[in-house]
Design a protein around this nucleic acid. Structure first.
Lengths: 131, 131, 131, 131
DNA sequence: GTGGTCTAGACCACT
DNA sequence: GTGGTCTAGACCACA
């Protein structure tokens, strides 16, 4: 038996200083993972409780994130067995991935400008970034 | 309109989709501007009302952001004349600027990785970014 | 000023013995009220807290019911001012009202049959029902 | 298949959309059948497994329903031979049957009112109901 | 005072 | 042990 089958191919990381609700950060990261193909239909997500422990948050908060994604048809839950990426063709329009990437990029450049870092310095910063 | 003496050298931009509270976004941008040296001790900030109009938000929200920064000693208000960057504290510590830059950079690289964009592609993205 | 303007034209009643989740009972009653025309676009619903008190339940439970209806686009919320029936053309297909009525009727007849009450007795029961 | 002696005079029907727990729906229907006299002391209920198959549910769920009724003294189980309506207790109190009927009637009238159907229309609805 | 988010912890339905 | 519902109570953003 291979335990990598359906292993959730996703690492969550919260940014407590961002001010964004935790449940939204989780939703975003699942969406991103689906958009980028790291999570695929049928994949099992971490259990509510295990993810709550991992993220040092409350199970209700995870349940809420999963719940909203379920309402949108992106996840399906099977009580007693877990939460899965829905088989339903996900809304993986190439466009929505590109739009997201552009959004993240724009915010990054804006934030860096606010911090006094100009665009041409960003390349060096990124190249010098390790882990 | 007259933007002469002590004109606030800061442009605010809100990201409503981020989920982050507005007052925090404002606080962050003021902090960033101070850290990067664009705002300096003695500089005058926009009035609560004018900024509320500009950002299409509630004056209370601006008041709250200014209030928190005042509690931290970063701003001082002089009733009848406005809100100013405090000159008591040496708010510009080189370290905290670098720490902030590193934080923003790390989150950006993480988000892009979540979206399936690897580090070496980021340089091209940034160079190709206009506007 | 007339206090009947936008007065919520809806009386909630929970059936604790039904076993159905409270938040679902609330959702159902709002849907029914919209289907039957008693609640119309723009109408304001009771506040979360007041309804929680009225139904002797927890505000979170009401918030959840309202929240799910908002996700479906049936309600809209304006923080600080209340929760309203969405202007968006509600899904008031004549069919869905009739389907609901038929469902409720079928369940009633089935339950009564289970209790040993035959259809022809039902008419007398209903006619004899007061209040 | 042989449905001879003490054949359970009860047909179960679940309403998955009601939100009511399955085990409660089963309990209710057994109670109703007893109240209405269709199940009498000494009658044998379906086996847990056969009912689980029939209702496409989990045997544990049936076991739970039977278990609760046994705790209340309404059923008795005789290991190896089955589950029976208890004959110790006079479970059929005329009052509790009437109370139940009244409850079901009240809820029906309330639901129909919520759907905009007035009492005087109900008679026609019921008379026109076939199936 | 109105809705939104979160925690801590309980109990339930189900595998 | 997995998800679902609920309570009680805290703090936040906003009008």
């Amino acid at each position: 038996m291979n335990s990598t089958i359906n292993a959730p191919n996703i690492k969550f990381s919260l940014d407590p200083s961002s001010g964004a609700p935790i449940y939204r950060q989780i939703i975003q990261q699942i969406e991103y993972a689906i958009l980028s193909g790291r999570l695929r239909p049928g994949d099992r997500l971490p259990t509510i409780r295990s993810l709550a422990v991992e993220l040092k948050t409350n199970p209700n908060t995870i349940a809420r994130a999963y719940g909203e994604l379920e309402i949108r048809g992106i996840l399906t839950t099977q009580v007693g067995s877990g939460t899965f990426i829905s088989d339903k063709k996900p809304v993986v329009e190439e466009d929505s991935l590109n739009r997201k990437i552009r959004e993240v990029l724009a915010r990054f450049i804006q934030d860096m400008r606010d911090l006094g870092v100009e665009k041409r310095e960003l390349v060096r910063l990124i190249e010098g970034y390790n882990q």
